[in-house]
Amino acid sequence: MNAALELERIEYAYRRNTALRGVSLQLKPGEVVAVTGASGCGKSTLLHCAAGILTPDAGAVQVDGQDLAALPEEQRAALRRTKVGIVLQFGQLVPDLPLVDNVALPLLLGGHERGEAHKAAMNWLDQVGIADDADAVPGELSGGQTQRAAVARALVTGPSVVLADEPTGSLDSRAGQELLDVLLEAARYRGAALLMVTHDNLVAASANREIRLRDGLIQHEVSL
């Protein structure tokens, strides 16, 4: 089976800091991988490279067999919009847009009809438990509500790859478990490959594999 996401020897340096020193990993459709490791070891950088938010200094990123760097800008943007769902560690919602529009945004940008996009967005807001807040703008939400909305937005296009950075970080354990279950369902029932960065061992426990980073390298990789 082809990998849904493949990273090959990714290297990345910020101006002063080398964050990744050659990290390779593969996720099959439906597979759930937890990326763990101490603060500053490169987890978010890895996720941003996988998402195409950062361009690696060396190495390659493939989504559904397509090399991101080899695609013209427009196709790369379309691939990211349709195939990759991202939940970032620090908010990513458009501030003045009601939640329903925030969640519908990836569909609207992809040319979907407005009514249809809203219907899909409402459905996802319901799944993550914040349908009642559909008309609120992000500034009116708690950290946990924002995270739920971010998960809804990441899943609305039915992506093949879901990348989530501390997706339950602002939630208490019960709410965190509920949101995690929504993400896991996307993997189990819709076959998305799910890569989750987490400090939370209870979240890591639901993965098929743990990849632990240290200083920009894989320290160990274990099947769970």
Partner: peptide, 17 residues
């Protein structure tokens, strides 16, 4: 020791699941 700790982590995580 590091290999042992990695395996022990996996074993604990599996048990939690």
């Amino acid at each position: 020791a590091a290999g042992f700790l990695a395996r022990q982590r996996a074993s604990h995580l599996r048990r939690i699941r």
